[in-house]
Design a protein around this nucleic acid. Structure first.
Ligand SMILES: [Zn+2]
Ligand SMILES: [Zn+2]
Ligand SMILES: [Zn+2]
Ligand SMILES: [Zn+2]
Lengths: 133, 133
DNA sequence: CTGCGGACGTTATAATATAACAACGAGCCG
DNA sequence: CGGCTCGTTGTTATATTATAACGTCCGCAG
């Protein structure tokens, strides 16, 4: 392997492709169905690819939906905490990293001596466009 | 009905009881297994109770675990956003509502014209005690 | 009484996720 | 070359989480 965390395999490319073209979050099974024509046959193929893609920061899991999205930034090497605003109407996912949010949460974590964490921040509602409609 | 959102039924009491006595989050099926001796037979009994309890703020769902906890405060009528710090070692769940966190997130929401939202904030890691050990 | 609505019980099934193992192929070394 | 090892893949089976659908029961308004 190179200095990179390593290149993507074919399956990983296909899963990432499906997520990148999607206009909203996709469940693992939606990905599977889309990739059946490309030869996918079973859930583990999707889940294994997703696992690797998430480890590399190319894909995020939306816990409140049990679904997945491609990282808006190509890959997430963000220093701050990543948050998602998810429109329940149109499926739009806005990935963001807000300094004030990061600071306030990391402050709480420090004050309460919580350890190395993985943090989930998900806002569910309607996006500006859908709320206006 | 009274001015209250209404009293709990027997099933709801039992589910809340199971969650209140638990030392950590419980999956719906863990609750079901615990309550089989009390006569529970099938998932819908648990899920229906949980739905009502959550609507009344007595129970919270932890999205990143697909599990449930009793509200630490008895019932949540909090004005701010509620967050959870979850210890992956011992299962301890610290429910909190931090003003700085609430403000920073609601600021982002306002700036981005997101609508009425339901917000999930979950910090996963090790609690102070477990991190020390 | 009668009809309605809410909680409940029950069966079946959907949706999400992982365990387990066989097969394959690329790289390495004898 | 032939055999080894390791990582990816394919495949089957199963575990886990959640909901649909329908019938029963019961309290209460009319
Ligand atoms: Zn990202
Ligand atoms: Zn929208
Ligand atoms: Zn609460
Ligand atoms: Zn702990």
């Amino acid at each position: 392997m190179t200095a990179e965390s390593s290149a993507l395999t074919k399956n990983q490319e296909m899963v990432l492709g499906a997520l990148s073209q999607a206009k909203g979050p996709m469940s693992a099974y939606a990905i599977l169905d889309e990739l059946r024509q490309e030869g996918f046959r079973a859930p583990p193929q999707v889940y294994r690819a997703l696992e690797k893609l998430m480890k590399n920061g190319l894909v995020h899991r939306l816990e409140s939906l049990n679904a997945f999205v491609a990282c808006s930034h190509g890959a997430c090497h963000s220093t701050g905490l990543v948050a998602f605003a998810i429109c329940d109407q149109c499926g739009l996912v806005s990935e963001f990293s807000d300094e004030a949010v990061t600071n306030s949460l990391t402050n709480w974590i420090a004050k309460n001596q919580f350890s190395n964490t993985k943090t989930t921040i998900e806002i569910r509602g309607d996006c500006a466009a859908c709320a206006a409609a």
